[in-house]
């Protein structure tokens, strides 16, 4: 290998002389027939890491849910609350960006963009608007009755159709992600 380096420096004369001496070269490697090959490879790293943060506030029998995306990749977000049979839940959002799916989940209607670091080092994080979950106690509820409400949030990386357009959140494949939720009660 090292010898190769020196050849250009040695000049044409030496190379020519060497070529003349090929005559006396001994046995070398021989391989079958004329064959050739070329190969190329490549690929990209997959970045799926996402970190979402959920803020829940509870007041007036209402949970106010906001999800922020601290990861760098855009995600879909959906949420759903479960309660016992004694309490009914009513969902609403002020800007209408949380939409009911056919599966009981409420989907934030657009991809939640990843966090972007600004030139000054500050990180701007995208947040959803508030999803309001109002807990409606039964009419015969008494002071001190409790109602356990479990809120489940899920987020998955944004998915695309074959043309590269982002799918609607409801149309995405949510089949496997682990559910995550919180348990919080409401008291009357």
């Amino acid at each position: 290998m090292k010898r190769k380096k020196i050849l250009p420096a040695a000049g044409y004369a030496a190379a020519a002389l060497a070529a003349g001496l090929v005559l006396t070269a001994g046995a070398g490697e021989a391989w079958a027939y004329f064959t050739t090959y070329t190969s190329a490879s490549g690929g990209y790293a997959i970045d799926l890491s996402n970190e979402t943060r959920i803020v829940e506030e509870y007041s007036n029998h209402t949970k106010r849910l906001v999800v922020s995306n601290d990861g760098t990749r855009p995600v879909y977000v959906r949420a759903r609350a479960f309660s016992g049979s004694q309490c009914a839940l009513a969902y609403s959002s002020e800007d209408g960006r949380w939409q009911a799916g056919n599966d009981g989940y409420y989907y934030f209607s657009e991809p939640l963009a990843g966090a972007v670091a600004g030139e000054d080092g500050t990180v701007s994080t995208a947040r959803t608007s508030e999803l309001l979950v109002q807990i409606e106690f039964p009419a015969d509820a008494e002071e001190g009755d409790e109602c356990n409400v479990v809120v489940v949030y899920e987020s998955i990386p944004v998915q695309y159709d074959t043309d590269g357009n982002a799918l609607a959140p409801q149309a995405a494949d949510w089949s496997v992600p682990l559910a995550s939720g919180s348990t919080e009660g409401g008291n009357d």
């Binding site: 890491s49 943060r53 959920i54």
Partner: peptide
């Protein structure tokens, strides 16, 4: 009132090669 959920994926950080 904050809950931070960090999701990890088996393929995260993996590089596909052809």
């Amino acid at each position: 009132g904050y809950t931070t959920i960090t999701v990890t994926y088996e393929y995260d950080g993996a590089r596909f090669c052809i």
